[in-house]
Design a protein around this nucleic acid. Structure first.
Length: 315
DNA sequence: CGTCAGGTAAAAA
DNA sequence: TTTTTACCTGAC
């Protein structure tokens, strides 16, 4: 293996990309169930000398078998292993504003969706939220409405079906009104009980629209602009969330998700700290970085976090 | 207790 | 069209 496909697995897992919550960590492995050709497979990833290795499990009492090469290909897609990092680093080094980033984010890669619906729920849930909270919420949602799978390594939960979310209750009250619990405090099978707050109706309505009017395959085939305008129609999806969905969920690498932090960082690096509006930052990022926009956004954020620039910009 | 967090939708200017 | 404001929730 040449050194271009290095990865920092832990950094990539914990970087808060809204394709999905981090996989379940057990010793030095990260594990999660991935549906491949309709078959649930437990993917186990671990890092060895900056490269990543995978092993797989099939459900107990099943006779599924899928070729390792097919599973490896899927794993490689999720961790974006075909992306040439050293070429990207050469690109960053050409811009003195960006050159310093590589030393803080070495091996950081896109963590792409294993399930597009999961990336949409995650992205909506992440809006005006903290990483810990939205990832906890999505994990809870999967435990409550996702199918459970038994592997030699334990139980894992898949992503709920669209119908499961559409039929879910939004809050304690709605659940209480529709069930025969004696006390409302017993209600916990509802979206708000997963800690999603006011995003509950967004998640439900967005899922209804996805189910009735949108097709993941169609969105994948669209141009970036067309796809952006399309998913912007989903409730709870503004420009930032739309770009997250397109980048982490649909692999539109030209997306430059722009939030308040990216705004501060880009303003600091490229506009002498002037207060540039978020939509302008987004335009700038897309024009300046082209197909690298998604990666530059990812690196900018973690560079700022790790270098201390973020604390500096807080003031 | 008040403030804040990786925005959005709805109201107001 | 652009700029404020309210908003679940849990952590400090």
């Amino acid at each position: 293996m040449s050194d271009y496909n290095i990865i920092d697995l832990e950094l990539t897992q914990l970087s808060g990309q809204t394709s999905q919550p981090p996989w379940k960590q057990e010793n030095d492995e990260y594990r999660e169930v991935v549906i491949v050709e309709g078959v649930p497979v437990l993917f186990k990833a671990h890092e060895l000398n900056k490269s990543i290795e995978f092993s797989y499990e099939f459900p107990l009492n099943s006779d599924f078998h899928i070729k390792k090469s097919i599973l490896d290909k899927k794993a490689s897609e999720i961790f974006d292993l075909d992306f040439n990092l050293s070429k990207f680093y050469k690109y960053l080094n050409q811009d003195e504003k960006l050159a310093e980033m590589t030393s803080f984010c070495e091996g950081l890669r896109l963590f792409l969706a294993k399930d597009k619906f999961e990336s949409i729920l995650s992205s909506i849930c992440s809006a005006n939220n903290s990483i810990v909270r939205w990832t906890k919420s999505i994990d809870l949602i999967k435990e409550k409405w996702g199918k459970s799978y038994e592997f030699p390594s334990g139980t894992f939960y898949g992503v709920p079906s669209l119908d499961a979310i559409i039929n879910s209750f939004e809050d304690d009250q709605e659940e209480f009104d529709n069930c025969d619990f004696p006390d409302i405090s017993l209600c916990e099978n509802n979206l708000k009980a997963c800690g999603v707050g006011y995003r509950a109706p967004y998640m439900k309505k967005a899922t209804e629209i996805l189910s009735l009017e949108m097709d993941f395959g169609e969105i994948s085939k669209m141009s970036y602009d067309e796809a952006f305008d399309t998913i912007l129609k989903l409730p709870g999806v503004g420009p930032k969330v739309a770009d997250c969905i397109l980048l982490y969920g649909f692999n539109f690498r030209e997306a430059f998700p722009s939030d308040v932090w990216i705004k501060r960082i880009v303003s600091h690096l490229y506009f002498e700290g002037k207060d540039i509006k978020v939509p302008k930052i987004r335009e700038f990022g897309m024009e300046e970085f082209g197909d690298y926009a998604g990666y530059v956004q990812l690196y900018l954020f973690h560079y700022a976090r790790r270098s201390g620039l973020m604390n500096e910009l807080k003031k």
